[in-house]
């Protein structure tokens, strides 16, 4: 549904998006994950034809996003980060305006507005001015606004930012509903992992304009394990020096750290067998043994750690360049 190939955007010397290639299938919820400034918003703006790529192309439903932006915008709904409304107009009037801009008749718009307000649970507040809306209400009205044009594709930029837990739950439920019941394709960009983990079919991890990993969450976890990143959490009684000595003496252990009463062991191989055998034969009591990994947090921090290291290296070079230029100037 969304096909991006070799998409590149530069701002001066900085490459915001670097040869991004990505396919999002029909009816899929895809999470674009990355820290702030990774180029997520830039990518989205290129998908909407609001900024022009330096290289590469993107299509939505086979329509070119740069050359035929009018057509793609007809079938694409966009929920910007920090979505806003005209404060002097009521929620209903804001939606009416969107409907009219999409070429709907007044009657058709009114009909859709009623249905959508019901869907997002905003019927009661619909006739208040949006200046009085809370963040969560704006977000819900934003979804209704996006749905006014009955889009095939929905793109959301940081939709979960600033929502309270209850609002978040409703919001995620709504997203799921949009994908599963209505069969819409959804692209979500975010730097918040947990929410994304709950609703996305696939995620792409996006750092410094590059997609460094992409796939199902379990796949990413497996990929991580295959790179020999194991993290084992252990709690035993007693936690004495002998036990610690045994652990540090094991083959393949890279790092041992204490987390309160627990111990976190990073290693190149699976240690569970060795640890349980040791504890069993030496009369320890095993209180907790947990193999970490496979959840998004792990994946995220692991990839980000890599990316940040590279970024740091890059940054140093950049600083040096900068310094040189400064010197030349003076």
């Amino acid at each position: 549904m969304i096909r991006i190939s070799g998409l590149t955007k530069r701002y001066g010397e900085k490459t915001a998006v670097d040869h991004l290639t990505l396919d999002v299938r029909r009816g899929e919820v895809f999470g674009l994950l990355g820290p702030n400034g990774a180029g997520k918003t830039t990518t989205i703006l290129m998908l909407l034809g609001l900024t022009e790529p330096a290289e590469g192309s993107a299509t939505i439903d086979g329509i070119d996003c740069t050359r035929d932006a009018m057509k793609t915008k007809r079938i694409t709904g966009y929920l910007p980060d920090n979505v806003g409304f005209y404060p002097d107009m009521t929620g209903r009037e804001n939606l009416m305006f969107t409907g009219m801009l999409n070429g709907l008749s007044r009657e058709e718009s009114a009909r859709r507005i009623d249905a959508l307000l019901e869907k997002v649970g905003m019927t009661e507040a619909a006739d208040k001015k949006t200046a009085a809306y809370s963040r969560g209400m704006k977000q819900r009205l934003g979804i209704a606004d996006v749905l006014m044009k009955d889009p095939k594709v929905i793109i959301m930029d940081e939709p979960t930012l600033g929502l309270d837990p209850e609002g978040m739950k409703e919001f995620l439920h709504l997203i799921r509903q949009l994908a599963v019941e209505d069969g819409r394709t959804i692209l979500i960009s975010s730097h918040q992992l947990y929410q994304i983990q709950q609703v996305c079919d696939r995620v792409g991890i996006f750092v410094e304009g590059k997609m460094i990993a992409c796939g199902k969450i379990e796949e990413l976890g497996r990929q991580l394990v295959m790179e020999n990143h194991y993290a084992l959490e252990v709690e035993a009684s007693p936690m004495d020096d002998r036990f610690l000595g045994f652990i540090t003496g094991l083959e393949g252990v890279r790092d041992v750290s204490g987390e309160g009463a627990r111990m976190l062991i990073h290693s190149d191989r699976d240690l569970r067998k060795d640890v349980t055998a040791f504890l069993g034969t030496n009369g320890y009591e095993l209180l907790l043994l947990r193999q970490k990994g496979g959840d998004l947090d792990e994946i995220y921090s692991s990839y980000f750690a890599q990316a940040e290291l590279e970024a740091e290296k890059h940054g140093k070079e950049h600083d040096r360049d900068h310094g040189r230029r400064k010197n030349r100037k003076s």
């Binding site: 966009y78 910007p80 920090n82 806003g84 801009l101 999409n102």
Partner: peptide, 14 residues
Amino acid sequence: SNGTLGRLLAQPIY
């Protein structure tokens, strides 16, 4: 500053 510009330009208008 209201955050309406992005939303507005994402509609099929020039």
